[in-house]
């Protein structure tokens, strides 16, 4: 028993060291910009950089679009599979897990060859087309997470009964979808949304290869050219991730609360 406890504390100590030393190191480094004293200069330099503001804004917008269109795709599909096509479940689940197996760089490589300006669907031929392709690629990347959280939320409500009740009351399809299903799986939608946000905001591969001025490639550029700003950016990115995850926890706790009420 004493041995168990000792090893448990030991494991935790190793883990804490492994996780906190890099964070502490990064934070310390980010304060070193001014010679001989600690300062927040690096952060000031980051925030005042026009490119930071532009790329971050661009990525925020992309993340937002990804979430909206991703959910419009995922929620009805998950709903339909549960309600009408349960035999398709394994297939749909398999497809949604594929992005975990096929590397992002391979997917985007396929896009570049398939949708170049000389092809039948020249997405990359225009700015708008490329932006659309970027959003689609982000939806693909976050598909496993979005589908999972929505499907989990749907398991806890009885979709069939809910639908039938709405149909008896004479509701039409869009009403059922947006008035009954979406609000009831909101906790799943929101946690899927935040994890998507965390993935998309700093994503590098897709944006870099599609040549869009997103936050990820900007980070890489700063990393290659500056000394202290990258550390400040890493701390900011970590804070953003933490915020997203905190919101997920908040949302799922809220979801549980509303569910436990009869």
């Amino acid at each position: 028993m004493k041995m168990t406890k000792f090893f448990a504390w030991f494991a935790i100590a190793v883990g804490v060291t492994y996780f906190f030393v890099p964070l502490a190191g990064t934070f310390e480094f980010s304060l070193r910009m001014r010679r001989g004293e600690y300062s927040l200069d690096a952060y000031g330099s980051v925030f005042s950089d026009v490119q930071f503001q532009q790329t971050f804004g661009f990525s925020m917008l992309m993340a937002l679009l990804t979430i909206v269109f991703g959910m419009l795709l995922v929620v009805p599909t998950a709903y339909w599979v549960r309600l009408r096509l349960p035999q398709m479940r394994p297939f749909v689940e398999f497809v949604t897990l594929m992005p975990l197996v096929i590397p992002a760089i391979v997917i985007v490589f396929g896009y570049l060859r398939l949708y170049n300006s000389a092809s039948y669907i020249p997405f990359t031929g225009s700015l708008l087309g490329t932006n659309i392709l970027l959003v689609m690629s982000y939806i693909t990347l976050s598909l496993p997470y979005m589908y999972r959280s929505v499907d989990t939320a749907m398991r806890t409500i009885d979709v069939r009964t809910l639908t039938e009740a709405a149909e008896i009351l004479g509701a039409k399809w869009p009403t059922i979808m947006f008035r009954c299903i979406f609000p009831n799986v909101m906790s799943g939608v929101l946690s899927g949304a935040f994890i998507t946000f965390a993935i998309v905001i700093g994503e590098f591969t897709m944006a870099a290869l599609l040549n869009r001025p997103a936050f990820g490639p900007y980070l890489q550029l700063v990393g290659a050219n500056k000394a202290y700003e990258p550390s400040a950016l890493a701390i900011i990115a970590f804070a953003i991730t933490w915020l997203s995850m905190g919101l997920i926890q908040l949302v799922s706790r809220f979801g549980k609360l509303t569910q436990s009420r009869p």
Binding site: V21, P22, F29, G202, F204, P230, S231, A234, F238
Partner: peptide, 11 residues
């Protein structure tokens, strides 16, 4: 992604 690399460079 990229920020993780920064963290380890700083460490």
């Amino acid at each position: 992604g990229v920020p993780l690399a920064f963290a380890f460079i700083a460490t």
